[in-house]
Design a protein around this nucleic acid. Sequence first.
DNA 1: TGTTAGCAATCAAGTCTACCGAGTGCCAAG
DNA 2: CTTGGCACTCGGTAGACTTGATTGCTAACA
Lengths: 337, 337
Amino acid sequence: MNAGVDDRRSTILRAVVEAYIDAAEPVGSAYLAALPGMRVSPATIRNEMSALEGEGYLHQPHTSAGRVPTEKGYRRYVDELMTSADPGPDRADQVQGFFAKAHQEIEELLSSTTRLLTRMTDLAAVVTGPSAHRARIVSVQLVALSSRTVVVVVVDANGSVEKRTIVWPGEADSGQLAEIGNAMTAHFRDREVRDVDSPPRFEDSELDKLGAYAFVAVREAVRDADRDGVFIEGTSRIAASFGAVETVRDVISILERHYLVVTLMRSLLSRGQGVAIGSEHGVSSLKECAVVVAPYSVDGVEVGTIGLIGPTRMNYASAIGVANLVSENLSRRLSEG
Amino acid sequence: MNAGVDDRRSTILRAVVEAYIDAAEPVGSAYLAALPGMRVSPATIRNEMSALEGEGYLHQPHTSAGRVPTEKGYRRYVDELMTSADPGPDRADQVQGFFAKAHQEIEELLSSTTRLLTRMTDLAAVVTGPSAHRARIVSVQLVALSSRTVVVVVVDANGSVEKRTIVWPGEADSGQLAEIGNAMTAHFRDREVRDVDSPPRFEDSELDKLGAYAFVAVREAVRDADRDGVFIEGTSRIAASFGAVETVRDVISILERHYLVVTLMRSLLSRGQGVAIGSEHGVSSLKECAVVVAPYSVDGVEVGTIGLIGPTRMNYASAIGVANLVSENLSRRLSEG
DNA sequence: TGTTAGCAATCAAGTCTACCGAGTGCCAAG
DNA sequence: CTTGGCACTCGGTAGACTTGATTGCTAACA
């Protein structure tokens, strides 16, 4: 029972899954028997498939049809049967080439990484920006837009820039603003974003009041930091993957709710899962989808997520391979500086 | 010929368009004759419809079907026959309420405005950020991320912040950086973004070299400024509007190419068109779509665009009304400060 | 002259039937 | 345990027929 990956039954399950991924049509015994590696007759394959159906790995849409993998079937395929997710040297080169001439700016880098993922897998791709919570603050500056409007600009060590526009309580004085900015920079410098808890204090009581006021903007600016960085591309591939418009609508409408997608990916990662198939992830609108996730890290710390979303009959080997490959390259790239 | 909007034939055309917008099904003479305002028999209506078909305003999918508006029919409807695009006091209140408690930050304001548009019209919505070319620069600062990495931060009068991360030629010295930043701020202050043409000069030859180097980053940062600000929401409504998955895929794949959408909207506006129907705009993948655009302005200068995209049988009155309403409110809001 | 009732004509879409064929399950022989 | 053979199932396709919506035309009418 549940022997290895080499027994005949498993081989047949693998062949069914791969054929179905390829052709999106129920797979019959005759087709399988004709496969190069297969040394048994259709009748034997039928027996095995019948057993696989009993075990819950396959499903028969109707009596006179071939078999289709169930979620459990895909799961077993991904966990045990799949041949290596190594994307091969061509793709490795492609990814390396991409990162070699990729843009400096982190946002543009991530956004074009998302497009790269979509292009390589033909799936919808998601990349979340590096979580800002652990990033260190490098500079805080206050700039007057007008006499009553001030923009607070916070730069962190990732090179992310967050800002908050506020109405200044009184006439904005550029000397004062500079002084507050310098004090803030000194105060927060090298502290992590999540440690922004109290404003710097000033001798001068007016400055102290203004400083406390500006501090609120700093806190809000860094609190929003994570919200910016979600990149999603390849939505149109979803339309190409499903025949039913309703499914397309449901899936796309989930993809439009970025925070939902991010939550989903994070929760998968935190449970140590790299792949969620069908209803495993619990989002009912995505029950016909599978999600592949991989974390990426900066200096060894996992800070962001790469995700691929497509139909359950996606090419898992390719998707997982590409996700990991891109994750490694992106991590390396972001850890350089 | 082409009398007014009050002759019977025009009334019938209007009724056909409105019925078709409503029900998405070919409209027959019996249905029209039963309409409250209609005082003639189905036979008469048939005669008129036949004439309208001859004039190119209507089309009959097949002999035993009712009539469907052609592009020309929609065009005439929008230009002459449509009843007022006034969205009514409820919606005006809704929009005012929205802007009353909307977010300060321009990006978030525009992004939630896009969602508002989608919600109110059930169409895909696009808002382009205020063109930065005419914005005045308020501040330029150089911040060291590490000894060899510097981020150049440019703040403009809209409150937009642009940045560019560069490798510094040498050890980054915070005193030098501050000096260059101050000189840049003084040099570019109140100049328009499009006028960023030459760096400030420094007495010190090393500073002058570094300044020229940093200037490149400033120019690149402001050149990219326009690229950020495109907000698109409601893609999933497209899936709900069309029956064919291919159409959905085509349209969404256009929506994914932001620059294409922006170009389309700008070119419509520059030709003074507020509505483009079907093939009028020349983007073949959108031939089953109509696009409604409205500019918005800051202090009387048109700086950005609002757009709505949906099927040709969208509710034009509502779409145009909402686009204009939101445009006015957004303009007012952005011109306040 | 414009309007209308009446009516035959048209044609998409639905229903019914027959049939084909892909694919199975099972049995008996190897 | 494997396999060939065979009856069986059932979705899908094709054709014939029906239904119903809608038209265009004609002739009568105001």
